[in-house]
Design a protein around this nucleic acid. Structure first.
Lengths: 173, 173
DNA sequence: AGAAACTCGCTTAGGAAGTAAGCTATATAC
DNA sequence: GTATATAGCTTACTTCCTAAGCGAGTTTCT
């Protein structure tokens, strides 16, 4: 266990301890700015992103992933539909469900984030294939982990609320 | 310009086109779940993150970075102070300003995100030093870019609002 | 088949938190 | 020394989320 391993540990600590966190803060900020630019709330934008990622979902699925209540989902879908971002279709196999589809091939979001994409592409020029593979695997791996931990956290929060008998956001009220 | 360059381009496209975006969506989701767990709103959590990152800021700085109005900042600071996350001190050089300091060395946020940190650390075990360097540089570089583009976007949005003479969020209303 | 229990999406009432506008106090420029 | 600009607070209003409850459709159990 020599200098190489030590250097690795130092890099790892730097990544998880500072870089990843600063990155997250920036991403959240950007996400909000994009939503504002499009005339959407952050929640609407988040749901639209999920829909684009996962293909077609039912409203209940969207609620399960985001942690939103069914009432909130109704509002999100109504706003996004009215603004032309998505359309609803009844599920042929289940009369209660509404399947949500993206209405636009090329979303207006693309135009908003393209300048950033271009800059990131330029940044990636500096790396070799071996490194790019690492970046791709890092992103895919952390995305998965982050999703799982978010779901876990929400589950804990909900069960805590049951234990402490509070409604709403704050425990002391 | 042979197979190596082609492979690089393919990887780059995959990263900026899909992986980075999925990663962002997951991060936003997680950020919200953490806030909920702590009994904070996403905005409060975001401001707390910024404060931890940048050291000590004035309320006006926080507003400039996040795009929030001064009224909203007043609310954020009041909630975070009441919950014990920060304290305010008058600026000795400017009687109007309030400098915001973190009140806690080890924030409760740490406990909430530590399990994720541990999993990410384990993931990083699979990479060599050369790759870890790339990941670190990628994170640092994109963080910077994302911040700059967020500020740019907000500037555009504000000037657009001036041009089209609308107040509030939606243009058609 | 029929009854009970569950799930989906919508509606309503209420609350949390944002914006916009106006105020006071301090700071700076002319 | 007066005028202008800035920091942060307050107020009125708006938006959007939660909680609770509904009707319609589906699944399960006997």
């Amino acid at each position: 266990m020599g200098a190489a391993r030590e250097s690795k540990n130092k890099l790892t600590d730097e990544i998880v301890g500072r870089l990843a966190r600063q990155h997250s803060t920036a991403v959240v900020l950007f996400h909000h700015a994009v939503a504002e630019r499009l005339g959407l709330g952050p929640t609407d934008h988040k749901c639209l992103d999920l829909l684009r990622e996962r293909g077609a979902l039912a409203g209940s699925d969207l609620g399960a992933i985001t942690g939103l209540t069914s009432g909130a989902i109704t509002g999100v879908v109504a706003r996004l539909e009215r603004a032309g971002y998505l359309r609803r279709e009844p599920d042929p196999h289940d009369g209660r469900k509404q399947i949500l589809h993206l209405a636009l091939e090329r979303s207006p979001i693309q135009d908003v984030i393209d300048p950033l994409r271009a800059d990131v592409s330029a940044l990636l020029e500096n790396f070799d294939a071996h490194q790019l593979t690492a970046i791709a695997e890092f992103l895919a791996g952390t995305t998965d982990l982050v999703y799982r931990h978010a779901a876990l956290l929400r589950a804990e929060t909900i069960s805590d609320m049951g234990r402490t008998r509070v409604t709403g956001r704050t425990a002391s009220k």
